[in-house]
Design a protein around this nucleic acid. Structure first.
Length: 947
RNA sequence: GCGAGGGUAGCCAAGUUAGGAAACGGCGGCGGACUCAAGAUCCGCUCCUGUAGAGGUCCGCAGGUUCAAAUCCUGCCCCUCGCACCA
């Protein structure tokens, strides 16, 4: 019954566009528009969430093209770094989950798997078999001549240039940085490489350097400000400890602690080892208070956490409090270690801060209140958290803190720490708070590595980045603050990795520039990527790129080719819109701004960024590892590319999350099919070439069309794909429904109007559903959609719109009365308001919607004053009518001849309600009962009576 | 914890920037028209009450400002995203 066959239409148009090189963009006299999207990272296949990411810029590109611009929409492939290598490794190891994803989620044939066993083989497979095929099937208007990968020699030359220049400008810096490090692989690891403890964050522990006869016993703590409250120390008597030279001093730490320190850029030399028992019962001296304190044995001390020795602050730590009580009660154990129980019993908690809501010894109060009695009680965790929180935010230090006395801990902790560190009493080390294990099975620790950084906290650079944000269009506007915040928050960014695909750092080619750092200005590379193919790699020196980007004056002997290419770059740059994801604001998008601001002049800075929301599938997050994804190829096969596109663009605005629900997608497909069928009918109609006489209802439809053109245009300018397509598609369907109900469509005027409407809507929808619309447009007019429509002032008609609105309102009113009374009237009387009521209306529009003010004006007029209450009620009704309508509309309303509007529509009403329709003015009422019925008439709200 | 966004009728979702109509639209549900029938299409209804187009109560919760609040202010609850070497 339907002729709509998306697959044949779509393949036909795809072929035509390819043959015509339709989207191969060359500089010309027209305005240029340059839109980009982050190049895909082919470490796996593409799902329908990615499809939206690339379709949104496509819609904008198509829109700008219809507006007459020359538009560039390119794609490249990001393969930098380790994810692809990791994926290949997992494949080669035959890891089950990886095989499952490749074979079952992404349908890689078994006999092809071997091709994926090299990084570029893997990338190439997904580029060709997934991304490109899907993108072409979706009809993305990409200039495919410009594609490249970030592992290409020419691209590497470009990145080399970028990093040499950044280095020249002093924005690169070499230094130490803590990273997660796998002891098994002896290499840094990323979150993706971590099997256990993926969420773990590493902490910077303060080491309080207690002294034991000239040997340092560093006690690890996260609360350095409690140093005055230390009453004793704890060590695990059974764990292994070492004495070692650490940066020239002698330290005692756990064996694990020593290994960690060795990885944190310290010079560690082990002297001897022993169990913790050796320190038990010894006295060590607090470096701040210079007091000796006793070392007690404790099983709860974890030798594999920081140094494996901790200080005890029983007044403020619930753990320490309980442990101390337990020690006091266990004479036997103490004696075992040769400790006099009396000395332990003499230890008293030493409060160092006043905390709101707690007594003198907060830890005791907290423990007693919660009735926790043992260090193994699971509830202790909660008690500890709560107390720590309260102390941190409301604890005030006591007098022993000198200049810090009376201050809130959260305000001064860092200062105290820095001060004692400076004085040599404190040191620090990094560690995780929990066990972390890599996928390779090795223990993961925090290591400090020599690294190159990008100095994103450089004040001048930061300032320029702020400026760039200030000058660009941000969609949605609410994200602007996120950029500002990110810029202020960014510190130095380590921009290299030890291994991976990509470009070696020119200053130190043992390292590879990491993915987020080699993807900041590559949009400029698109402008010349296709032409660079003809330039020998060796010719692409930094000077070549200087010439290309900075012009002939930048170098002594400018390269001719570079100068020639410079024209292309100048034509396309700046990037008009970068369409990216919400999640990239805090890194990629902000880096993009930084690097543009630094390396290019202001006119070349980013003009606009839109960030997109995520995709859900049947209400849940998509996940390729669990197979909870829909592949674009499958969706297109089932519904057609236009349906997929339309659903993605129409179900939510780009920055909102969308939810792919099969049922909804099916509905979308049905709607498009219906649209297609109706369009086909109109195309078949015999239609006059010249505009025939139009009825008011035809002019109304055409006026609505103009409104729709304006709304869709405004919306697309703001990237509101949903609003634009809703207006052009669903919104207009409603107007058409009313039109069909209101009129006979077999008139020349109606045919002409419907044809005009169809043509325009096809143009409005062309960016969204390009296959369907171009097909129909060509059948209708002989050529594809070539221009975006503009509002035709000849076809706007405010009066006819108001007249039609009155008819709709009256239809609703009559219908309401019929419903509520349950009657089936034979005769419907419609009374328009008496002339004096229109005088009052005019007064209301003049005075404004203020009942009191209008009344005092109106009461000046004797002929109105004598109507008293009636006028009062009328003014109230009219004020409600007028409120919220602009002056223009009100002025137009004043020109409407209400009675003739209803009379012209008599036939329509008669048909709708199957009744005789009588239209009269209120003043023409003859009998008392008729006058009664008619008296309620208000301008633009006639009285109605049913019999 | 920090930063950002959000909570609207059974579901999805507009409206919030410029306060002013129980609150666009869709889905689902109910009734009707057309049809041999189904589907498609069309017309009503779909918070409560109501045989005259009305009234009442509503926009996470609790207050406040105002003639008037889904919209502005304050506090609270809940959800989502980001928080660094990772695309």
């Amino acid at each position: 019954m339907t002729d709509y066959d998306p697959h044949s239409i779509e393949s036909r148009w795809r072929d035509r566009w390819t043959e015509a090189e339709r989207y191969e963009a060359e500089p010309d006299d027209a305005e240029s528009t340059f839109v980009t999207v982050p190049y895909p990272y082919p470490s796996g296949g593409m799902h329908v969430g990615h499809a939206r990411t690339y379709t949104v810029p496509d819609v904008y590109a198509r829109y700008r093209r219809l507006q007459g611009d020359t538009v560039l929409f390119p794609i490249g492939w990001h393969v930098t770094g380790t994810p692809i290598i990791g994926a290949v490794e997992r494949l080669k190891k035959g890891e089950e989950q990886q095989l499952d994803v490749l074979q079952n989620t992404y349908n890689v044939p078994s006999d092809t798997l071997s091709e994926l066993e090299t990084p570029m083989g893997f990338a190439r497979y997904f580029i060709e078999e997934h991304y490109k095929k899907n993108m072409k099937a979706l009809g993305l208007s990409v200039d495919w001549r410009r594609e490249f990968t970030t592992n290409d020699e020419r691209y590497k030359r470009f990145i080399t240039w970028q990093y040499e220049r950044l280095n020249d400008r002093g924005l690169l810096e070499k230094g130490l940085h803590p990273v997660s490090y796998c002891l098994e692989q002896e290499d840094p690891v990323t979150t993706h490489d971590i099997l256990e403890g993926e969420e773990a964050e590493f902490q910077e522990y303060t080491l309080v350097k207690f002294d034991w006869d000239g040997t340092t016993v560093p006690m690890a703590t996260l609360r350095p400000e409690t140093v005055h409250g230390v009453t004793n120390a704890y060590i695990d008597p059974d764990a292994e400890y070492v004495r070692a030279q650490v940066d020239g001093d002698e330290w005692i730490v756990s064996t694990e602690g020593a290994e960690k320190l060795a990885h944190q850029a310290r010079d560690v030399e082990r002297l001897d080892s022993f169990t913790g028992e050796r320190l038990v019962g010894q006295r060590v001296t607090n470096p701040v208070t210079e007091e000796p304190v006793l070392v007690l044995p404790a099983g709860f001390v974890d030798a594999d956490n920081a140094t494996g020795v901790v200080m005890s602050v029983p007044a403020h730590s619930p753990d320490d409090w309980i442990a101390l009580q337990e020690a006091k009660d266990d004479d036997e154990r103490l004696q075992e270690y040769g400790i006099d129980p009396e000395t332990v019993r003499a230890i008293e908690a030493r409060p160092i801060a006043d905390v709101d809501g707690y007594g003198e010894v907060p830890a005791r109060d907290a423990v007693e209140f919660a009735e926790v009695e043992s260090t193994t009680d699971p509830e202790l965790e909660e008690v500890r958290q709560e107390l720590y929180n309260n102390e941190f935010h409301s604890g005030r230090l006591k007098e022993m803190y000198g200049e810090y006395a009376g201050r809130i801990i959260s305000d001064v902790r860092d200062a105290i720490k820095a001060e004692y560190q400076q004085r040599g009493a404190f040191d620090s080390m990094y560690d995780f708070a929990e066990m972390v294990v890599s996928r390779a099975g090795g223990k993961v620790i925090v290591s400090e590595q020599e690294t190159w950084f990008l100095r994103y906290n450089d004040p001048d650079w930061t300032e320029m980045a702020h400026e760039a944000v200030g000058e660009m269009t941000v969609i949605p506007e609410t994200t602007r603050e996120q950029y500002t915040h990110t810029i202020d928050w960014l510190e130095e960014w380590p921009c290299i990795r030890n291994y991976g695909l990509g470009t070696p750092l020119p200053m130190d080619d043992d390292f590879i520039i990491e993915p987020l750092s080699d993807s900041t200005i590559y949009m400029s590379y698109y402008t010349i990527a296709h032409r660079l193919q003809d330039v020998p790699v060796e010719q692409l020196t930094p000077k070549f790129f200087d010439t290309l980007f900075y012009g002939s004056d930048a170098v002594a002997e400018p390269d001719e080719t570079a100068l020639d290419l410079r024209g292309e770059w100048e034509y396309w740059y700046p990037v008009d819109f970068r369409c990216s994801g919400n999640d990239l604001i805090s890194n990629h998008l902000t880096f993009y701004l930084y690097h543009h601001a630094e390396l290019f002049e202001k006119p070349q800075w980013p003009q606009g960024v839109t960030s997109m929301g995520m995709g859900l599938l049947e209400g849940e997050a998509m996940s390729s590892s669990s197979g909870h994804v829909v592949l674009p190829s499958e969706a297109i096969e089932e519904y057609g590319a236009d349906t997929v596109r339309f659903f993605l663009l129409n179900s939510a605005e780009p920055w909102q999350d969308f939810d792919w629900r099969d049922e909804r997608v099916e509905d979308t497909r049905d709607q498009l099919e219906r649209f297609y069928d109706r369009a086909a009918e109109i195309i078949e109609l015999d239609c006059p070439d010249e505009q025939p006489d139009l009825e008011p209802i035809d002019r109304w439809l055409l006026a609505k069309l103009q409104e729709t053109v304006a709304a869709a245009t405004d919306a697309l300018e703001a990237f509101e794909t949903r609003k634009a397509s809703q207006a052009a598609f669903y919104g207009f369907e409603e107007h058409l429904r009313w039109y069909r109900r209101r009129t006979d469509r077999d008139r020349p005027g109606a045919r002409w109007a419907l044809r005009e409407v169809l043509r325009t809507r096809l143009e409005l929808l062309a960016p969204f559903v390009p296959f369907l619309t171009n097909e129909l447009h060509e059948r209708l007019t002989g050529e594809p959609s070539t221009a975006w429509p503009s509002v035709d002032p000849q076809l706007t008609d405010p009066i006819v719109e108001i007249e039609e609105m009155l008819i709709e309102q009256l239809t609703e009113d009559i219908n309401d009365i019929v419903n509520v009374t349950g009657t089936d009237p034979d005769r419907i009387a419609v009374y328009t308001a008496a002339d004096w009521k229109y005088d009052v209306f005019e007064q209301v529009t003049e005075t404004g919607p203020d009942v009191g003010a209008v009344m005092s004006e109106v009461m000046e007029r004797p002929e109105l004053r004598e109507r008293g209450n009636e006028v009062n009620q009328l003014v109230r009704d009219l004020v409600d009518q007028v409120r919220g309508r602009d002056d223009e509309t009100l002025a137009t309303m004043a020109d409407v001849e209400e009675r003739s509007v209803y009379e012209r529509a008599r036939e329509f009403f008669a048909g709708e309600f199957d009744a005789e329709i009588v239209v009269k003015n209120e003043t023409d009422a003859e009998t008392d009962s008729e006058r009664e019925q008619a008296s309620g008439a208000v301008p633009f709200r006639p009285a109605v009576h049913l019999n």
